[in-house]
């Protein structure tokens, strides 16, 4: 396949045709990668909703050098040969990213001190990087009661940013989806028709793909702050999935089991519920060694070095 040239923040990179701007930026890496709250490379059709990855296309392509009139979602826009993209070098992009961060936060409860996701939360990272120091809102936030959306999964809708990742997980890696988005606008919610209806071998992956603390693991809930637990790569013979997981330990105890996440918070492989929820004994696992967390977040601190 022929490679095409694209320039992002003055850095030139050659990528395959059909690559999105976001993935081209990820090939460069570092600070030019736009944040992505809803895009998930392993889920088809994801992205385009949160608008945090909007970038400016200063030159459409070598053939047609006109700039694009509006900011474009980098996760959904494919690169053209000779395209020039501005991300952190464009004040307009940064200003909009600040505004989008604010939009995502105006109805968010900011209950990080009691949220299990704190420390590995993408919204937390986003607001550290792009948020305002003070809120501009005096309005009441919209609220929902937390519900058990499945036997082992807690849904706290107040924290949800409607990224649709969990909906796509259910569509694409389980045999049928029983939850979805009900209602519309800022009062829309992720829910099921029947309480605790999500019961599927792979439903736990909803927790891994959730960028915020909306979907949390009930077997880990309130056990520990994530940064006090130590991650290890581990695997087991599993008839359902690859069995390759990350186990999070405190002392001798396994507090939770998750997929192995890369620096963008995406799992390398989806794992089954049996591995995730039912194997919390060290004898269940073959431990490979400490896991380095590449993500720049609280979670990556305080761990063993490889």
């Amino acid at each position: 396949m022929s490679l095409i040239k694209v320039t992002i923040d003055n850095i030139e990179v050659e990528v395959e045709a059909g690559t999105t701007i976001l993935n081209a930026a990820r090939q460069i890496g570092g600070s030019v990668v736009p944040p992505a709250m809803c895009y998930y490379s392993k889920l088809e059709g994801s992205g385009g909703y949160c608008r945090t990855c909007l970038v400016k296309v200063a030159q459409g392509s070598a053939k047609d050098p006109r700039p694009m009139p509006k900011l474009v979602p980098s996760c959904r826009t494919t690169v053209q040969d000779g395209m020039v993209v501005q991300n952190i070098t464009s004040p307009e992009v940064m200003e909009n990213r600040r505004a989008i961060t604010e939009f995502l936060l105006i109805n968010h409860p900011l209950d990080c001190p009691v949220c299990d996701q704190a420390g590995e939360c993408h919204l937390q990272d986003l607001s550290y990087a792009h948020g305002l120091d003070e809120t501009q809102t005096v309005e009441e936030r919209r609220t929902f009661e937390p519900i058990d959306i499945g036997d082992k999964i807690k849904l706290n809708m107040n924290r949800c940013i409607l990224c649709y990742r969990c909906v796509k997980v259910a569509d694409q890696i389980t045999d049928h989806r029983v939850h979805g988005v009900l209602g519309r606008g800022d009062h829309s919610e992720i829910s099921t028709h029947i309480l605790k209806a999500i019961d599927n071998d792979f439903s736990g992956n909803m927790i891994d793909v959730c960028p915020v603390g909306a979907l949390t693991d009930k077997t880990f809930r309130f056990k520990s702050r994530v940064w006090f637990t130590k991650p290890f790569d581990a695997h087991r013979e599993c008839p359902t999935c690859s069995g390759k997981t990350a186990i999070w330990m405190k002392g001798e105890e396994i507090l939770r089991v998750t997929g192995r996440k890369d620096k963008y918070g995406e799992v390398e492989e989806f794992i089954c519920n049996d591995c995730r929820f039912n194997h919390k004994e060290i004898k269940d696992w073959i431990v490979e060694g400490p896991r380095t967390i590449e993500r720049h977040s609280v979670i990556s601190q305080n761990h063993y070095q490889k």
Binding site: Y49, I100, F103
Partner: peptide, 12 residues
């Protein structure tokens, strides 16, 4: 309610 600026902005 699909994308954040409109979902949150209109209510605000």
């Amino acid at each position: 309610g699909q994308c954040s600026p409109c979902r949150e902005g209109t209510g605000w």
